[in-house]
C-alpha cells in the first residue's frame, strides 16, 4: 500500500472514521486521503458501506468516532448545509431532484445558495441577471438547455442523472461527491456521462462511488477499496486491479461471474 501523505494538498481527509447503528458496526476506522484536484473512486462489494461513507462525509449521518477534514478544516459533526457551504457538494444514488420544478429552477436553487441569497425576499428572482446567467451556463455544461423549461419529473432517467450532477455543481463546491452517477445507464449513456463528469470536474476534486470498472479506469487517478467498513487498499487503478488481496476480496467475485 502506497499512501501519499501530503497534508497540505489533501482536499478531504478521513481519520479513523467509525460508525455504528446500534450494535452493528458498519465503519471500522476508515482512513482516506483525497488529494486536491484528483479524481478518486471508492469501490467495494455490495454492502461494504460505500453509500454510508458518503452519508457520513456529507453530514447526513453523524460519525460515531474519528475525524473528517475538508481542505484542512474539520467538518465533523456539522449539519449538511454547513458542510455544503464549506465547499463540498454531493449527488445521490437514487435520483434526488425537485420533481415539480422546472429543470432551470432546479439548478437555480443551488446557484442562489452559492450567491448567498438564501433568504432573498425583496427582489424578484427574474431580475437577478448574474444568477440566471450562471444557471444557463451550468445548464449548457450538463447539456440540458433544450429541456430548461420542462418539469424535472418529466425528464428521462439519464437526463435526470445529468441534472443530479448539474445540481452538485451549482453551489460552487470544489470537492464533489458522486454516488454511482452511471448506475442503470446503457453503454452509450455511460460513455456520455463519463465525458460529462470529466469536463465538469476539471480543476476540482472528485470522489465517486462506482461499480463499473471501465468507468473507474477511464476517469480516476486513484482508487480506494472499501471492504466491510474499512479501506483495504488505495492506489492507481492499474495497481489496484493487480493487487492480489483486492482480487480476492472484490474483483475475484466479478471475474468469476
Amino acid at each position: 500500500m502506497t499512501r501519499k501523505t501530503t497534508p497540505r494538498t489533501s482536499a478531504l481527509q478521513l481519520t479513523d472514521v467509525t460508525k455504528s447503528f446500534g450494535e452493528i458496526s458498519v465503519m471500522k476506522g476508515v482512513n482516506l486521503d483525497v488529494e486536491a484536484g484528483e479524481r478518486h473512486a471508492v469501490i467495494g462489494p455490495n454492502g461494504a458501506g460505500k453509500s454510508t461513507l458518503f452519508n457520513l462525509i456529507s453530514g447526513l449521518f453523524a460519525v460515531s468516532g474519528g475525524d473528517i477534514c475538508l481542505n484542512g478544516r474539520s467538518i465533523t459533526g456539522l449539519p449538511p448545509h454547513r458542510i455544503n457551504r464549506s465547499g463540498l457538494a454531493r449527488s445521490f444514488q437514487i435520483t434526488n431532484i425537485f420533481h415539480r420544478l422546472s429543470v432551470f429552477e432546479n439548478l437555480r436553487i443551488g446557484v442562489l445558495a452559492r450567491h448567498g441569497v438564501r433568504f432573498g425576499l425583496f427582489q424578484p428572482v427574474s431580475r437577478m441577471r448574474a444568477i440566471n446567467e450562471e444557471t444557463v451556463d451550468i445548464l449548457e455544461r450538463v447539456g440540458l438547455e433544450p429541456r430548461a423549461d420542462h418539469l424535472a419529473g418529466d425528464l428521462t432517467y439519464s437526463e435526470q442523472r445529468a441534472l443530479e450532477i448539474g445540481m452538485t455543481l451549482t453551489t460552487g463546491a470544489d470537492v464533489i461527491l458522486l454516488d454511482e452517477p452511471t448506475a442503470g445507464m446503457s453503454r452509450e449513456e455511460t460513455a456520455k456521462a463519463v465525458e460529462l463528469i470529466r469536463s465538469v470536474t476539471e480543476g476540482k476534486t472528485l470522489l465517486m462511488v462506482e461499480h463499473d470498472m471501465s468507468v473507474v479506469f477511464s476517469l480516476c487517478d486513484r482508487v480506494s477499496v472499501l471492504v466491510y467498513g474499512s479501506i483495504l487498499a488505495t492506489d492507481t487503478p492499474e495497481r489496484i486491479s493487480a493487487n492480489r488481496q483486492v482480487q480476492e476480496a472484490y474483483l475475484g467475485e466479478e471475474a468469476a461471474t
Binding site: S58, L60, P79, P80, H81, N84, R85, A89, R90, F92, N96, I97, F98, H99, R100, L101, E105, R108, I109, G110, L112, A113, R114, R118, V125, M167, T170, T171
Partner: peptide, 17 residues
C-alpha cells in the same frame, strides 16, 4: 422559489447549502 423546492425535496435543499 426555495419554498416550492422545500415542498418537493427537503433533503436536497439541505445538501445545496
Amino acid at each position: 422559489r426555495l419554498t416550492l423546492a422545500l415542498r418537493d425535496n427537503e433533503q436536497r435543499v439541505r445538501f445545496l447549502g
